[in-house]
């Protein structure tokens, strides 16, 4: 039997299981902690920093930090949300995010976070980096302009698909997704039904011929902010 742990998130008492991360405990208690690199089916990674909370006054990422008895977590406060907003804005200026023609628009988690935080435009200057697109595969393509380096595809391909078709190359501002072949994604064993292809939070790793399928107005984040399903408990009923 699992051991119970009690903690508070924004003053609310919640109970979790020993060994859980703050993120998992929060999700189980219908509390939304904004996140981007975290995915429930993948190992925690802690790269985007959007889920940063103050844990007993110290900044920690909810997706990687284990809960403990008496822990006090500050999540939905102005201070914390302001930092998250800045991180989201950093991601927007770092890449080339052309939402107006992106197939993922309306269903994109990065865009949805910006909507939730009320970002009308990032406060930082756009960097306009040069990034490579790889459309060599018959069914899948990578647009690195949109990549937020969350490693979801890397983790899914390695741990779920068992293929290790992706990994990071380069470092610092030059860090980017590389594929397991010298000459493009078509030479990797990636398939359209790979977990790796399904988990991209943005429009970076996409299925071909699937764009704009859902009309504007019916997309995931057209009417309700990201996290609403968690806050209302709707995500669990599905």
């Amino acid at each position: 039997m699992s051991e119970n742990v009690t903690l508070t998130i924004d003053g609310k008492d919640i109970t979790g299981e020993k060994g859980q991360t703050i993120m998992d405990a929060a999700l189980a208690n219908d509390i939304y902690i904004p996140h981007l690199c975290h995915h429930p089916d993948l190992a925690p990674y802690g790269s985007c920093r959007v889920c940063t909370c103050l844990v007993n006054g110290r900044p920690q990422t909810a997706c990687t930090f284990p809960i403990s008895d008496g822990m006090e977590v500050e999540n939905d406060t102005d201070t914390v949300n302001e930092m998250r907003k800045q991180i989201v804005e950093m991601l927007f200026v770092e890449g080339n995010h052309y939402c107006m023609f992106c197939e993922k628009s309306g269903n994109c988690e990065l865009q949805a976070l910006a909507y939730r935080f009320g970002v009308t435009t990032p406060r930082y200057p756009y960097q306009f980096p040069k990034r490579e697109v790889d459309a060599s595969h018959p069914n899948v393509w990578i647009d690195r302009d949109r990549c937020v380096l969350c490693a979801r595809c890397i983790r899914a391909s390695k741990d779920v698909d068992g293929k290790h078709a992706f990994d990071f190359a380069g470092r610092g501002p030059n860090r980017h997704i590389s594929v397991d072949a010298a000459d493009g994604i078509e030479h990797t064993p990636v398939d359209a039904d790979d977990k790796a292809v399904q988990v991209c939070p943005v429009g970076s790793l996409m299925l071909k011929r699937q764009g704009y399928k859902i009309p504007i107005g019916q997309r995931k984040y057209d009417h309700e902010p990201i996290g609403t399903d968690i806050e209302t408990g709707a995500s669990k009923k599905q």
Binding site: M90, E94, L149, P173
Partner: peptide, 21 residues
Amino acid sequence: FEEESCGYCTPCRVGNVLLRK
């Protein structure tokens, strides 16, 4: 720092570039 950041996390990867600029 911009050169030596590993680039794993957003604030260090992006923020140091913005600070430098």
